[in-house]
């Protein structure tokens, strides 16, 4: 259910990722998140907008690199990761689009360097069905993804959706 990722050149940092489907308490989580009342800091991502885990890992890698150099653009490492998922420089819009919304059904939850207790706390917060991360690609809402990232049909002929998104994440600050 849980998957742990490591990063080359960033010794010791890990990213723990969970996928929950049919989440019923998104509204509640969102309120807690905004009020800062969650037991552990973590990031909630709208799972229908992430076609591949490489997108999540690239965003996390970028956030960790910025954190290491104390160049975060948002208030925390986790919000930086969410900001990095987008191809846009608009932070507020990005958090709204790619983060948790009141009606979110499927959620990707991630936390850097999570301990056993953190994992248990996260599972207690989310009222949804934890499933294997391999199911992620079946949830993708391609129409919205191509709209948000402005991906042309031409581009999809030469590469995958994940490739196109990866390029946009990397090239955002260019």
């Amino acid at each position: 259910m849980e998957q742990v990722f490591e990063f080359e050149g960033l010794c010791g940092r890990t990213l723990h990722v969970w996928l929950f489907i049919n989440v019923s308490n998104s509204k509640d989580i969102l309120q807690k998140l905004i009020g800062g009342q969650l037991p552990v800091e973590c990031v909630f991502v709208n799972a229908t907008l992430v076609p591949d885990l490489i997108v999540l890992r690239a965003a996390a890698h970028k956030a960790l690199t910025a954190d290491q150099r104390q160049r975060l653009k948002t208030k925390s490492l986790h919000s930086e990761m969410l900001y990095n998922i987008s191809g846009s420089k608009h932070i507020g819009e990005t958090l709204k689009r790619f983060g948790i919304a009141e009606g979110s059904q499927h959620l990707l939850v991630a936390r850097f360097d999570a301990s056993e207790e953190d994992a248990a706390a996260i599972k207690a917060v989310v009222a949804g069905q934890p499933v294997a991360l391999e199911q992620l690609h079946t949830l993708t809402d391609t129409a919205t993804v191509t709209k948000y990232y402005k991906i042309s049909p031409e581009e999809l002929k030469i590469g995958s959706l994940a490739d196109a998104i990866l390029c946009r994440i990397a090239a955002r600050d260019c």
């Binding site: 690239a58 970028k62 030469i158 590469g159 990866l166 990397a170 090239a171």
Partner: peptide, 9 residues
């Protein structure tokens, strides 16, 4: 629609 290497980072 022209192939180039994927920019990763």
């Amino acid at each position: 629609g022209v192939l180039t290497p994927v920019v990763q980072h």
